[in-house]
Design a binder for these strands. Structure first.
Length: 617
DNA sequence: TTAGGGTTAG
């Protein structure tokens, strides 16, 4: 069999040597230019010219140039060469033309005996999310007795994250163990990633733990896997372990770590990561810069986020999206919309995500008209088809503004079927505007789509609580019991001296638990004493039922460990409950601290008994 | 032919 190494050995004509050099340095367009010069000079290309030029077309995603090269391959009689066939298949797959790749494979029967050709086509199917085709070709390969090697696995394993193929992936893992292929680190890495992406975090971690000598990519697979599964706290621990084991992080590691710092509000850790970024010259990496923007913005330092954004030599659509989202979270809708306009002026075409961002920014800031205008522009000007998430934003936009009937009419006129998010937005609006009848309609619909989403049951129950409908509260409670829901795990985080402290509702596992609860008791007493003259905007009372909520524990911990005048950032990944909102407001009057609370979608500033976000409740 | 990466409303 002719392999890539042979290509490297025999590509000795000056033209081919130069083509190889350019492609190996990732100078792909230069390599194609050189190929054209070669033709113009009258030199005939041979089989050894094509792997490099085809690779360049694949890298630049130039299907037309690739097809031209395919014609040349035939004209110059190079099609029978196995490494040319493989390069052709790979090129078509990387340009998204999987059917053409299959044609090359089918029409050149010699490829039916070459594992490299199968490998190229299988990984092409995988990259184009064609799980059934990949699995089918793998079966054919085995039936024909073609040898399966570790590269076959590397091409096939990533497709097993599709729900129907999880068992297939586990089966492949078994085959690799039996065939001894699991001794190859790359293969194990691909399985770690597979388990993590399927949400089988335990299996992924178990496999990771069994690897005796872990490489950079092994660490990255488990770190990004934890990050994708929302285990931000574990990511920071793993990052420390990785450094102690002597493996140095690369941009991929740092992107995941920064993303977790953003979620946890761990600004000190994030700043340390930024030093590593600078020391290693990773700042020019657009993924790293995007993660830095998001980290600073979500930690409440908008100026630093903007600083990173401003000095970026090249900004991607994600950079703009992250920065616009930051302004939305901080209630600075006008600045966010202006940035959106600037982005368009820079010639960047918006996508669906950036529209979700601007629409939600408008609805949080009460810019209803502007939001509706943008939704219209999305369809008409930018020719983007709105998805259910955009319709949900519009329902939220109208609903928050109190235009609930209009929101209902809007839902009924939708050209696509409304999903849970759309009805959920209506339900949220009914909560704000105390519309129990409409809430019941929205709730019935929302649980059709998302019967296991506990948040909606809690929301409906709170609506009944507001309207003092005891029968309704019981009904929801029975439904929740029938569906086997447990108490909602409310997490809050506070960073202190570079360490993130996590609190769960009713948690007693923290090392300072005794002191934290003692502080909480003191605060409760003071707040209760104040309650007579500082009432909740909504109900005029302070409930004691929520006294062990995670945000209160986090606040008590922070007061205990910080000195007066300090600004405290508390992170809550769900919406801060109404009682805790009132509690923190009152606490900010008692103690000399400024609280910045970030919940699921925005920042709330509490100082001297006042909160910045009155419109929210 | 080949393992790991960022933004997202309710």
């Amino acid at each position: 069999m002719v392999t890539g190494s042979l290509v490297r050995r025999v590509a000795t004509t000056p033209w081919n040597a130069r083509l190889r050099e350019l492609a190996s340095q990732s100078l792909f367009s230069e390599s194609l230019t050189l190929y054209r010069s070669m033709l113009r000079s009258g030199s005939s290309p041979d089989a050894f010219s094509y792997p490099f030029t085809l690779k360049s077309c694949a890298a630049l995603s130039l299907p037309v140039s690739g097809q031209q090269l395919h014609c040349h391959v035939i004209r110059y009689g190079c099609v029978a060469e196995p490494f040319v066939l493989t390069a052709l298949i790979s090129m078509y797959c990387k340009c998204g033309l999987v059917e053409d790749a299959r044609k090359v494979f089918d029409e050149n029967t010699q490829s039916h005996h070459l594992s490299v050709c199968y490998n190229a086509l299988i990984s092409g199917y995988t990259a184009n999310a064609k799980a059934a085709d990949a699995a089918c070709l793998f079966r054919t390969m085995k039936e024909r007795g073609v040898s399966v090697d570790s590269v076959t696995m590397l091409g096939l394993v990533p497709v097993c994250t599709v729900p129907d193929y999880v068992w297939f992936g586990m089966n492949l893992h078994g085959q690799c163990v039996r065939g001894g292929m699991d001794s190859e680190l790359a293969v194990v890495n691909s399985f770690v990633t597979m388990y993590m992406r399927c949400g089988s975090v335990e299996s992924g971690r178990r496999l990771f733990d069994q690897v005796p000598v872990k490489g950079l990519i092994t660490w990255n697979a488990v770190i990004s896997g934890c990050a994708q599964n929302g285990l931000a706290y574990d990511v920071l621990e793993l990052y420390e372990e990785m450094k102690s084991s002597g493996v140095r992080p690369d941009p991929v590691t740092l992107v995941s770590v920064l993303s977790c710092c953003a979620h946890l509000g761990a600004q000190k850790v994030g700043q340390e990561v930024e030093k590593v970024v600078e020391a290693n010259g990773f700042a020019s990496n657009v993924f790293v810069s995007n993660a830095l923007i998001s980290m600073y913005a979500r930690c409440g330092d908008l100026a630093k986020a903007r600083g990173v954004f401003d000095v970026m030599p090249v900004r991607s659509l994600v950079s703009w999206t992250a920065m616009i989202g930051c302004y939305g979270m901080h209630g600075m809708a006008e600045t966010g919309i202006k940035l959106f306009d600037d982005m368009v002026k820079c010639g960047i075409r918006p996508d669906g995500t950036v529209f979700v961002m601007v629409l939600s920014t408008c609805s949080h800031s009460g810019l209803t008209g502007k939001g509706l205008e943008l939704f219209d522009a999305m369809k008409r000007e930018y020719k983007l088809e709105p998805g259910p998430e955009h319709y949900a934003c519009v329902v939220d936009l109208l609903g928050r503004a109190g235009r609930i009937d209009e929101a209902m009419v809007f839902i009924e006129s939708m050209p696509i079927e409304p999903d849970g998010a759309v009805w959920g937005a209506l339900l949220g609006a009914c909560k704000i505007h105390k519309n129990v009848d409409m809430a019941e309609v929205a709730f019935a619909k929302v649980i059709e789509f998302e019967p296991m989403n506990i948040g909606y049951y809690v929301l409906m129950s709170n609506i009944y609580t507001d309207s003092k409908n005891q029968e309704g509260i019981w009904r929801i409670r029975v439904m929740m019991r029938e569906r086997g829901f447990k108490k909602e795990p409310g997490y809050s985080y506070v960073e202190h001296k570079g360490r993130v402290h996590l609190f769960l509702a009713g948690d007693r596992s923290h090392e300072q638990t005794e002191e934290v609860y003692r502080m909480l008791d003191e605060l409760e007493t003071s707040v209760m004493e104040m309650a007579g003259n500082t009432e909740c905007d909504r109900c005029g009372e302070v409930s004691s039922s929520t006294r062990e909520h995670s945000e209160r524990l986090a606040v008590a911990f922070a007061i205990l460990n910080t000195s007066p005048g300090t600004e405290i950032l508390v992170i809550k990944n769900l919406r801060v409950c109404e009682d805790c909102h009132v509690f923190i407001k009152m606490v900010s009057k008692i103690v000399d601290r400024r609280f910045v609370v970030r919940d699921a979608s925005r920042f709330h500033y509490f100082e001297d008994g006042l909160c910045s976000c009155k419109d929210y409740w």
